[in-house]
């Protein structure tokens, strides 16, 4: 899975195993969207290894959590 398909994740920063719905739907851009509200992130994340919202180490899966030095992180 190419992290560049997700604007919410950054290659080389976030764990390669993080997943969210936006990576799994072939969604096109909606450039005018931000005319109608400010950016927000309502995303639910999960780990492809565990298939849950918790990583192999039992901690939650979120971009802010899956970018550091967790043992399970795969950059």
């Amino acid at each position: 899975m190419d992290h560049l398909t997700s604007s919410k994740l950054t290659s080389g920063v976030h764990c390669l195993n993080i997943r969210h719905k936006g990576m799994y739907v072939t969604s096109g851009p909606y450039p005018e969207e931000l005319n109608f509200y400010d950016p927000y992130d309502a995303t639910a994340y999960w780990c492809v290894e565990t298939q849950r919202g918790f990583g192999p180490d039992g901690k939650p899966v979120r971009p802010d959590m899956c970018s550091g030095d967790r043992e399970c992180c795969r950059h």
Partner: peptide, 28 residues
């Protein structure tokens, strides 16, 4: 959003407030 998951949403929605401020907190 429950155990460790986010909860954000668009606010204000659709209508045009020229001057606005907003801070959101995720609660687990």
């Amino acid at each position: 959003g429950g155990a460790g998951a986010g909860s954000n949403f668009p606010l204000p929605y659709l209508y045009q407030f020229p001057n606005r401020k907003r801070v959101h907190t995720d609660v687990y």
